[in-house]
Design a protein around this nucleic acid. Sequence first.
DNA 1: CGCATTTAGTCACTAATTTTGACCGTCACT
DNA 2: AGTGACGGTCAAAATTAGTGACTAAATGCG
Lengths: 150, 150
Amino acid sequence: MRRSERKREVPDLGILSSRTLFSVQKELFSRLSETGHSQVRPRHGAVLAYLDVEGSRASDLAAQSGQHKQVIGTLVDELVALGYVERQPDPADRRAKLIVPTELGRDHMVKSDAILVEMEAEHARAVGEEAYAEFKRVFQLVAERQTRTK
Amino acid sequence: MRRSERKREVPDLGILSSRTLFSVQKELFSRLSETGHSQVRPRHGAVLAYLDVEGSRASDLAAQSGQHKQVIGTLVDELVALGYVERQPDPADRRAKLIVPTELGRDHMVKSDAILVEMEAEHARAVGEEAYAEFKRVFQLVAERQTRTK
DNA sequence: CGCATTTAGTCACTAATTTTGACCGTCACT
DNA sequence: AGTGACGGTCAAAATTAGTGACTAAATGCG
């Protein structure tokens, strides 16, 4: 059997992750753009995906998303311009600034969380609720292990 | 519970895929560079991951990797310069060219396949062989479903 | 306290990557 | 022969990623 064929029939962990990631992103942002968030692109996910309603620090977002803090900086600039977040001084640390979602930003967060939940619910329905729950459980373990041993 | 905390404890499918993809890539290419393939970067994976020993067409690689064919073109240029692949005319279609791995390219392919297998074997050992096999089975279904409904 | 070190964030710059549109030659079908 | 689709490349624009240096504030320590 050809290698390309084998990769198609028995994809490795990297291929599965990559295919899943990019098609999840594609569906998510295409559906978000239908609900009024057409200006936000996947890369803004590094901020919006981890943002707290109470506000988050840029360096926390950098750590969680795995991006450099300079990247977070420009993403926040763009999201400020689009009206999704605001920069506020952090009362606990005068060096830091809190990135706080606006009403629009909170709407985006709520909707994208809901779309993700819905997408996963459809998969669960298709493969079986129990099988999907077990899949998520093991996936989380694998992701943690893999991240650690990098 | 804060949203960022919840995302950490119960990551969604996109977050899990992204974390897994990037740490798999990081480990794979760092180990490859220790075995003499230090010039090859993750993005070349779009070509090398799906390449057949018999040679593959650029447009097949584009379709399988999800990249534009222009991207495949530049990746192939770089891999040719590095001595990993050659362009040969496709006997079956005079428009097309076959991307064929050289000896060096085949070595890369064999080694990266082996490293991936090894990495997965370690996960399987940690979470249980059976659980891991079931995880892979469901992951493949989910990836297929997700790719289809994009 | 006073000094060195670390941390949060930004600025400015450079390199790399992705995306677009047009283009040529070949194929498949009529 | 004529037409539309396909395989691949070129060139340019737009987006994204990576570096080094810098300010201000917090932290640690003698």
